[in-house]
Design a protein around this nucleic acid. Structure first.
Lengths: 223, 223
DNA sequence: CGCGATTCTTCCGAGTCGCTTACGATCGTT
DNA sequence: AACGATCGTAAGCGACTCGGAAGAATCGCG
C-alpha cells in the first residue's frame, strides 16, 4: 500500500512518514500544495494524508482539483482543532475523513487502515480468503490458524492482493503500489515474489491470469 | 435514504433526528444498545449513527456483532472528545467514521453525506446476457455459474460483444478495438476467435449476420 | 439445383509469457 | 568481521497463446 503525505511542517511530515513506514506502507512525501497536487495526480496512491493549511496551494483546493480530475483515492484531512468549519468544507470537497491537530499518531494509523479497508469494500479489520486471514490491524497473517512468517515485501504483496480480492491485479499495478516512484519496471521481481508467497500460503490461492496479472480468491469459489 | 440513530441521550437523539429529517432522510431511533442492535440487524439502513457509551450493550459490541453477521452499512460513531482510544477501537471494529462530542450538527450531516456517497461507489460492474455473466472489474466471466477459462483476447472479444449487446458488430470494428492501429486486415483471426469463444460459451449466443458481422444476444430473444 | 462468396473448423509453428532455480548484493545483527 | 535474512537479477525451461493457412461447410442468389 502506497501513501502520500502532504504536510508543510517538516517535523510532522517525517513523524507521520516514519510511523507509516514502520507499519509497512510505502510512503511519498510532499511539502507544499503544488508538489502534493502533482504527485497525487501522477502516482496511484491507496490513500492520502492532506494538510489544509499549505503554502503554494490550499489543501481544499488541491482536493477539489483531484476530485475534479476524477481521482477517487481516499483522503484524510489534517486540520486545526478549532477550525471545525474547515472540516465540513473538506468533507464536502470530497475528503473521506479528517483528524484534528494535535493528534495521536496511532489514531492516524487507525484511520488510514480504515480508509484503505473501506475503499476495498471490507467492513472489518480482518480480511479472510479461504484459509488465509489477514489482520490489517496487527500486520499479521495466518493460514489455517498457523501464523505466517512473511518478509515485509511478501506481506505487502499479500495485503494488496487481499484488499483486491476477486479482481485481476496487473504486475505494473503491484509494482506501483509496492515501491515508491522509481523502480525498474522490466524485471521479474513480482513473479519471484508471487512464487515465494505461493510457497508459503499454498498454490491454489493466487491464480495467474495470463497476459493480465494475478487474482486472489478462495479456491472452489465458482465465479 | 434511511438512517438509524442509536443514542441514549434522548435530547441529543431527537436533535440529530430532527436535523436528519430536515435534510430529507428517513430516520429510526434507538435508545439503548440492544434495541439498536436489533434494529440494525433487522432493517436495511443506508447509514447508522452509533453512540459508544450505551446502556444494555456497549456501542463497540453492537458494531462488532453487526460486522460479524456480515452487515456492511456505513457506521458513524459518537464518542467523548477525550476518549481517543475508543475511536481507534471503534474504527478497528469496523466503524467508518466518528465524531467527537460535543459536535456541530452540520458536521454530522456532512459526514453522513460523505459516508453514503462513498458506500454507493461499490456497485459491482456486471453485464449479463442469458446464461453468461461478465464481471468487468474482476476480468472474469461465467456461464451458468461455471467460471470460464478465457485467454486475454477471448475475454476482450467477449467483453466488446457484451458491451454492444443486440448490435451487429463488424469484423473491422472488432479488429480495431482488439488490436492497436495496424493489423493485417485480411486474415481470419476474428473468425478463429469467434469459433473458440463459441466453443466455450455455447453456440447460440453469438449470432453471425452474414456479410455484416456478429451479434450477441440472449437466445430466444425474439429479433 | 449449382455456383460463388462467405464463414467455420482444424492444425501447427512461432513466439511470448510465466515459473523456477540459482546467485550476488545489501542490510542488520551478533 | 562474519553470519543470516532478504531482495533483485538473470537464465533456462515448459506451457500456452496467437494467428496464419487450407480445406470443409454453409449461405445467398440466380
Amino acid at each position: 500500500m502506497r501513501i502520500l503525505i502532504v504536510e508543510d511542517d517538516a517535523n510532522l511530515n517525517r513523524q507521520l512518514a516514519d510511523a507509516l513506514k514502520e507499519a509497512g506502507y510505502v510512503v511519498d512525501q510532499a511539502f507544499d500544495g503544488e508538489e502534493g497536487h502533482y504527485l497525487g495526480d501522477a502516482e496511484p496512491y491507496d490513500a492520502v494524508i492532506l494538510d489544509i493549511g499549505l503554502p503554494e496551494m490550499d489543501g481544499i483546493t488541491v482536493l477539489e482539483k483531484w476530485r475534479g480530475d476524477g481521482k477517487t483515492m481516499p483522503v484524510l484531512i489534517l486540520t486545526a482543532r478549532d477550525r471545525w468549519s474547515d472540516k465540513v468544507a473538506g468533507i464536502d470537497a470530497g475528503a473521506d475523513d479528517y483528524v484534528a491537530k494535535p493528534f495521536h499518531v496511532e489514531e492516524v494509523l487507525a484511520r488510514i487502515r480504515a480508509l484503505i479497508r473501506r475503499a476495498a469494500g471490507h467492513a472489518s479489520s480482518e480480511i479472510v480468503c479461504g484459509p488465509v486471514r489477514l489482520d490489517t490491524k496487527g500486520s499479521k497473517a495466518t493460514v489455517r490458524g498457523v501464523p505466517l512468517k512473511l518478509t515485509s515485501h511478501e506481506f505487502r504483496l499479500l495485503s494488496y492482493l487481499m484488499h483486491h480480492m476477486g479482481q485481476v491485479v496487473s504486475r505494473t499495478e503491484l509494482v506501483e503500489h509496492m515501491y515508491d516512484q522509481d523502480f525498474d519496471r522490466d524485471s521479474n521481481t513480482i513473479e519471484v515474489f508471487i512464487g515465494r508467497l505461493r510457497k508459503k500460503i499454498g498454490n491454489d490461492l493466487i491464480e495467474t491470469v495470463r497476459g493480465l496479472g494475478y487474482r486472489m480468491q478462495a479456491p472452489g469459489n465458482g465465479n
